[in-house]
Each structure stands twice: as C-alpha cells, then as structure tokens.
Design a protein around this nucleic acid. Sequence first.
RNA 1: GCCGCGUUCGUCUAGCCCGGUCAGGACGCCAGGUUUUCAUCCUGGAAAUCAUGGGUUCGAAUCCCAUACGCGGUACCA
Length: 509
Amino acid sequence: MNKIRTRFAPSPTGYLHVGGLRTALYAYLFAKKNSGDFLLKIEDTDRKRFVEGAVEKLINSLDFLGLERNEGVMLSKVLSNNANSQESKNYPGVFEVGEYGPYIQSEKLEIYKKYADGLVKNGYAYYCFCEPERLEEMRKEQTAKKQPPIYDRFCLQNVSEEEINKNLKNNCPYTIRIKVPQDETIEVDDVIRGRVKFNTNLVTDQILLKSDGFPTYHLASVIDDHDMQTTHVIRGEEWLPSMPIHILLYRYFGWEAPKFAHLPLLLNPDKSKLSKRQGDVAVEDYIKKGYLKEAIINFVAMLGWNPGKGETQEIFTLDELVEKFDLAHVHKAGAVFDIKKLDWINSQWIKKLSIEELYEKSLEFFKEKEFYKNTSAEKKSDEYIKKVLSIEQDRLQNLSEVGESNQFFFHDANFDKELLRWKDMSDDDLKKSLEKSLNVLENITDENWTRENLEKILMESAGENRGELLWPLRATLTGEKKSPSPFECAWVLGKEETSSRLKNTIGKI
RNA sequence: GCCGCGUUCGUCUAGCCCGGUCAGGACGCCAGGUUUUCAUCCUGGAAAUCAUGGGUUCGAAUCCCAUACGCGGUACCA
C-alpha cells in the first residue's frame, strides 16, 4: 500500500482561520496516525485576494501550534533534512522542501497551462470567449426560469475552429472550460459521508483556466494533488458540490483519484458558517486572548470528532490525538463553536502547567496591565509574580485574566469599614479581631511564613468562630468582597506588607 | 430557483453500520457539601417524545420512504 499523504492547502488571505486549523489538524492527525506524510502547499491563484505577509503568518501559526510538516512550504530550510530544498521565487525567505514541488501555485502557472491545453487538444475542454456580462445575463435568465444555473456552451457549439484560431491570434481574452459529459451519474465514496451521487446534466462546464492565465481551484488542486501524490484529500464540506468536476478531471488526465473526506463546517451560534462577524476566527486572536495552543488544538479537535465508543476522555495532547484519531468518528453535521467549552478546556490546560511554564506564558500579559506597570520593582520580581500565579492558577480561564481580579497584590487595598465587619460586629470587636491577627502573624518567623503554616496557625487561632478572625483579616488585606483566602494573600504579600496593612487599617477604625 | 449535505439535552457528543439498556458522557445551568468570601474539588438535579409523518418488525434513535427545517454550493473566490 502506498504511504499515506495528506496536505493542508490554505489561501494566503491574512491569518490562520480556526476552521482552517481544524482542517489542517485532521489532515495532520490522519497522516501521523498512519505513519504518513503531512505537507503544506499554498493556493495563491487569486491575485485579488493576496495579502502581504500572509504566507509567513500561516507558516508561523502552524509551527507555533506544533503541526509539523514533512514537506512543502517552510520558513527555514533548516527545518528539514531534505536536500531538495529551495527558496521561493515569489516569497523571499520562504522555502519549498521536497521533491514534488513547486508547492506554491503561483509558481506552477506554466504547468497548469500545459495541462489545460492538453485537455483542449483531447477534446475534454474548450476555449470560451464569453464576456462576464453575458454570463451574468445568462444566469439571471436561468434563475428567472427556474432552470439550473449552468453554462449554455455557447462557445462550444457556436464558435468554429477558424474563429477560435483567429481569436487566439488576436489575443482575445479567453478561458478554458471543462467539457462535462451528458446523462451520466458520477458516484463517489466520501470517507465521511459515504456514497454521494451527482447528475452531470446539472454540473456546469466550470472554468479551469482564467483569462489572466491563472488556474481556478479545480484545475490547480487536481494537478497538485496528483503531482504531490496526495492519497487523501481532507477539506471542508464547502467543496463537496465540486467533487464531480474533480473526479472528471482525474478521469480525463488518466490519473487515479485520491480518497476524499469532506469535513463538517464550524458554525456560529446561529448555525451559519463560522464568521468574523460573530466573534474571533483567527487562531492568533485566541492566542492573544490568553488561550493556550494545547487548549485550542484540543477544543478544535473535539468539534466534529470524538474517540467513540465508551471513551469519555476530553483532554488530549496532540500526541494522544494522533494515537486515537480516525476519520470514521468524524461527525457529519456542522458543529457550533462554543466558547464556554473552550474556556473550560483552557482552564484544564492552565492547571496542568508548572509554575515556571505559567510564569513564562503569563508575563507578557502582566506587562500590558496598568496595575503591573505602576507597581513597585519588588512586586514585579519573578519570585513575587510566581507566588501570585500559584494562587491564581486554579482560578484562570485564560491567561489574559492574570492578576485582573487580585489587583490588591500590586497596590494598597481599599479601605471599607463596612466590608471589614464580620456579620454585625462592633467597631471594638473588629479592632480586637485585627489586633489578634496582627499579633499572631507577627509571631511567625520568616522561615515559617509558608502557605501551609499560615493556614494551620490562623485556623488554630480562629477556633470555633472562624469568620470573626478570618473575614476581617482577608478584607483588610484585599479590600475586596471576593478574593483568595487570607492565608494565601498573607503568604504572597509577605510578613512585612501584611503587618503594615493590618496596622494601617487598625489605625483607621 | 437548482444541486448537494445534514438533523440525538441550550452547546459538543456516545449509541446507528451488526434493531431489544429508564438514550450515556462533557460544557453550561441549578442545588448541596468542603470553605470566612471567591475559585478549585466532591455529590446530586433539571435538561433530548432521538426534526416530523408514514412504513418494515414481536420490538426502531438504530432499517426503508416521504415531508419539514437548517446549512453549503450555485463566480474568470478559494
């Protein structure tokens, strides 16, 4: 059996879309699961949509997420030990690695042209000189008459060989269209959907080569997948309707068609195709918001796929996904992108982080916060930040929330006498309670100032009515209705700061 | 309009191929426990007449047909 080969084939429109990520991920998982190759090619045949720097961004995102490629477009040739590597002509700094290139469509223009001409020569395709205006007019009429919207073959039936040659000689703009056979049913077995049937009378003679000399997706993708020896075409459901065109092209070229797997769509909460209007769609936006790549991959993998049977595990590493993945358990229906579940998965991944890792990933988010910018050098120390993080770790849904609800760690706590009061205790009792805390805490040595000790000692001192001692203490240290426990807060703040906050408050009562 | 795909708790889904569990899990929600508050953690609960209507069958979420609804495609975009 041939080695499994899958590919991710994005258009460089600016960023990696989460839907694109899911497609890339499934292609990656399927290839890796089956000890196959995963490659990246670039579909940049639409010059109107080209965005500067998009190719580099796409590659960076995939690299960052850890979706390694064996072949195709890469940012550094060091990434591969394949000697067959060269810098792209159209994208300086971008390399094409592997022996089945070019992996960038804009660099294969002559190849596509050659194949398109070959189809014409063999009678499988024909020149079309129709102008866009006529085509639009035709479509309008068809819709009005409730007819299927297919090209009327004007140029196939009414333009003589002679005229064609004359037009070509005069540099008349032309396109090349595929000639779809009549009265045939094309059947394809989609890996995910099973048998799908199409009546060729309802399939239009799609344009293969545009008048600007660029191929359309249909021509380019078929040639690429053949050239690159793709065994499984894994792509979004939006391509399902054009399958007959692709099947026909494989037949016309005399090539064996790969297997097709059309993935269900990612949906907005209103069930329409996931779009920018209803939230973020770029992977980088989620990273900026403080979602971990592990969580994003984990979440996106579960949208439309599950390990099946009795398996209830929900948290998976990339390697675990590789191990468990199979196309058979990909769902057929679209999946709503539910941010609440992403939040939960992210919180699970944050909990798994070591303090070192959490610190490294959180620092950039701290640096953007006003409370951090304005705090003392001591409180910016890695030691202090790590203490704060060790307490926040269980409370974070995403990294950008870091420090946000515990700002008292970075500046003085608010003074609110009514907040300090436990139930309806008197000023006098309140003062006594705080003095007791102060006394207890001042007797703890620096070495003993640990989370465990503080909890143990304060709990012991509090006795039966814990709230009487602990609530005023906590409210003093934090100035907030909600916060981590007084033990944790005192531990982070340190003995000196804890004492001074207590003294300060006592003085105000 | 035409073509294609889809339809199990609010959401992600198991189960469907090989008919026979009060249709299972997770997120979210609610309640309780742990707890000075918050979060974590633990326990419990509400939540799907399996889109609808017909068949087939002793028996259907599971097989068949129809309908409805949703989405996608209908471009010299991918």
